[in-house]
Amino acid sequence: MKINSRTLFTLSALVLLCLFLLTGCRQEHRFIKKTAFKDANSIVITFAGPVDEGWAKDISKYTVYEKPDPDIKLKITEAHLSQDKKTVTLRFKENLNQDQPHMLAMSQITSEGRSLGSAFVSVKKLYLGYLFSVLIGAMIINNFVFAKYLGLCVFFGTSQKKSTAIGMGITFTIVMVFSSMMAWFLYQFVLKPYRLDFLEIVVFIGLVSLSVQAVDTILRKVNPMLFKAFGVYLVLVIANCIIIAVPLTLAANTYNAMESLMLAFGAGMGFLIALFLMSSVRERLELANIPRSYRGLPIAFVVAGLFALAFLGFSGMSIF
């Protein structure tokens, strides 16, 4: 199991570059941070700063139409300004066709007495983008190890060597995706309709053991080489909090099948990233001159703390 670390680095740098490009493209006016659909008949506009109430409440300043037919202007019934004066909710007379992108023109935006000119922005539902944001959210922004502090036993146990770290991460991701999808399915279609959601812990942990056992049985026969490489980590998967935390998160929120898949995959990849980062540092630590009382776990904890501080920088970031 040998993966060139330079290739990995280049790959991750490329992914990050794409991310920044994508986020950069969305900005259409410097004063408007975000536009989105809300409910069936509303559009929410988020501004970078507070806007004047007199301007915001005047519905004649807004023009909205569906992108393919600019002649049909949609009828606005009310413009509601939030408490902090940064978000305006436009309510429409009829329900919006959210599959179509909408164009929104605002004339003479005034903020604190100053005019900021007119803005012309689009409002669209980006489902793929949303899925992607769920994935990145679980992988980096809410990384289960560094931002939610879960799965630490296995994290510290298997991050001594890069090869171990990658093996554990891959095994974990596979089992995670399998068991979470089964858990989501059972929860949505069996436990919830029959009001048996108090059994969630028993069912979810049972499903995890089952998937581990199934992967173990099948892999042992189908690919003994792979089993030799990854078999040892299978047992450790059950002892990892993340594997049970993801189904519980799925049960507590209303995600659909695709979003659940993305969340589970993101959680697994996030664990892999955390393990890889940590093992890279710990391989160096082996050679460093550390005070005797700090050797082994204590210094690993301090390093993990520094990583967590770094990951704190991602918090609050939204992609789409």
Binding site: L196, L199, Q213
Partner: peptide, 17 residues
């Protein structure tokens, strides 16, 4: 109901395994 559902899941996956 809980007993029935857990039993069914158990039997189903038990046979599968």
């Amino acid at each position: 109901g809980g007993l029935a559902v857990l039993g069914c899941i158990g039997i189903f996956f038990g046979i599968g395994l």
